[in-house]
Design a protein around this nucleic acid. Structure first.
Length: 426
RNA sequence: GGAAAGGUGGCCGAGUGGUUUAAGGCGGCGGUCUUGAAAACCGCUGUGGCGCUUAGCGUCACCGUGAGUUCGAAUCUCACCCUUUCCGCCA
């Protein structure tokens, strides 16, 4: 949610920012018009309320019955007028809310302007420590099926396309990755949380997922339960409607959750393998900071995510997203992409964003600089650390051997329980 | 799922239609006193919106949420949500 005061004061800036994202800026003008109307009507109805409050108090003290009835009749008319104005106000506020809720966040000035992902800026490539394979690398779906650790057929039998079953060492590899990543986050200073995987609609709104991305979410038909598309959603709301002490900031969190996405927007893309499913696992990083510190923690989160890939010895690259590819709530985003030789692709495994006060406004998360000071909105940041299926793909494809086995990365061995995977079961 | 009780400021807690402008207490902040501290005493104490002559002032809203009754609602009515206890079911 953008600050209405910013829209009032700098409509040109907001308009241009929306255009830079490739969106239509006309809602800005509608918002300004509605905002003016709102304030006019509000002033009128509040003057009437003030009158009614005062007169009602007098009525309570009046002894003369006739005079009393006269005043009551008069206030009845005032009441009717207030009701009329407020009905109008409610309509305007609903429209205003809808329009402002649909506006994306403003991009940071450092974000390059561009129409789509082709204009993202490659910042650098970091070579991993692993030797290049001296044989033609296979894609993970072949590795997985040959080892018997990924069962696509039974996944489809259970749930349809884009589902799979992990067997034996495959399941343990994923579990090991999750546990190792969480421990790495703890060493990096994040606190772990175990969160609800189903949340209320309001929780999704505060994180910026609703109303805009309704089509990409799963929800219960009968109750107000929505499956989380990312841990970012419950983490954002962890401190919803709270005023934090400045001493409590920053708050750094990490959480593992499954993520559920309908992938309606990506129908037909990446149908092969485990790259894009309706259900996937992710370890997330999240931060609540003072406004002036959020950029510092953006860099920390990016470094922390990068450390994951470095410790796995993988080759990756860092991109700065352009305005056209930026997420709805984000001001600035780094993407980390890991090289995977089997599919011959750079796979997006992490997205690290500074959201500024965009989610804090929606979720009403504030802090007080000192006792008695006026509460201010915090800044929030989120980053994947990392997405599991794609990290699994990268591990399987980068650590595959000529004989079809997969060596377990050294850091994962204590977590997985073996040095090398030769078959599904020991 | 059934029954009962309940939801009031940072916390406890009073409040069954109009001097409630939400009592009182605790906590917190400031002050008096003190060598210092404690005690005692005095003062202050939430969030948001709108307006203005903007260190402030005025006004409106907020007592779980939403509707309703009324000139006037924390208080009355209805629906819903949540909490606690008991019963049932269950990992």
């Amino acid at each position: 949610m953008l600050d209405i005061n910013l829209i009032r004061k700098e409509p040109e800036v907001v308009r241009q920012a929306i255009i830079n994202r490739g969106n239509d800026p006309t809602p800005v003008d509608e918002i300004l018009a509605l905002d003016t109307q709102r304030r006019e009507i509000l002033a009128r109805s509040e003057r009437l309320r003030a009158t009614r409050n005062a007169v009602s108090k007098e009525i309570g003290r009046m002894r003369d019955e006739a005079e009393r009835e006269a005043k009551k009749a008069e206030m009845r008319r005032v009441g009717d007028e207030i009701a009329m104005l407020e009905a109008e106000l409610a309509k305007i506020e609903a429209q205003l809310g809808e329009l402002t809720a649909a506006l994306p966040n403003l991009a940071d000035p450092r974000v390059p302007v561009g129409p789509d992902e082709t204009h993202n800026v490659l910042l650098r490539v970091v070579e991993g420590a692993l030797p290049k394979p001296d044989f033609p690398p296979k894609p993970h779906w072949e590795i997985g099926e040959q080892l018997g650790i990924i069962d696509f057929e039974r996944g489809v039998k259970l749930s349809g396309s884009r589902f799979y079953v992990l067997n034996g060492w495959g399941a343990r590899l994923q579990r090991g990755l999750i546990a190792w990543m969480l421990d790495l986050r703890l060493r990096q200073g994040y606190e772990e949380r175990y969160l609800p995987f189903m949340v209320k609609a309001q929780t999704l709104f505060a994180a910026g997922q609703l109303p805009k991305f309704r089509d990409n979410l799963y929800h219960d038909a009968e109750e107000d339960f929505w499956m989380v598309p990312t841990a970012e959603v419950p983490l954002t709301n962890l401190h919803g409607n709270e005023i934090l002490d400045a001493d409590d900031l920053p708050r750094l969190y990490t959480a593992y959750t499954p993520c559920f996405r309908r992938e309606k927007m990506s129908a037909g893309r990446d149908v092969r393998g485990i790259k894009r499913g309706h259900q996937f696992d992710k370890v997330e990083m999240y931060a609540f900071t003072k406004p002036e510190e959020s950029d510092h923690y953006l860099e920390k989160m990016r470094e922390d995510a990068e450390a994951t890939l470095k410790e796995l010895g993988l080759t990756y690259r860092v991109k700065l997203l352009c305005t056209g590819d930026l997420g709805f709530a984000s001001r600035i985003t780094y993407d980390l992409e890991v090289w995977s030789p089997g599919v011959g692709e750079w796979l997006e495994v992490s997205s690290v964003s500074n959201v500024g006060d965009f989610q804090a406004r929606r979720a009403n998360i504030k802090f007080r600089r000192e006792k008695g000071a006026k509460p201010e909105f915090v800044h929030t940041l989120n980053g994947s650390g990392l997405g599991l299926p794609r990290t699994m793909i990268a591990v399987l494809e980068n650590y595959q051997q000529a004989d079809g086995s997969v060596v377990v990365p050294e850091v994962l061995r204590p977590y997985v329980g073996t040095d090398v995977i030769r078959q599904a079961h020991a």
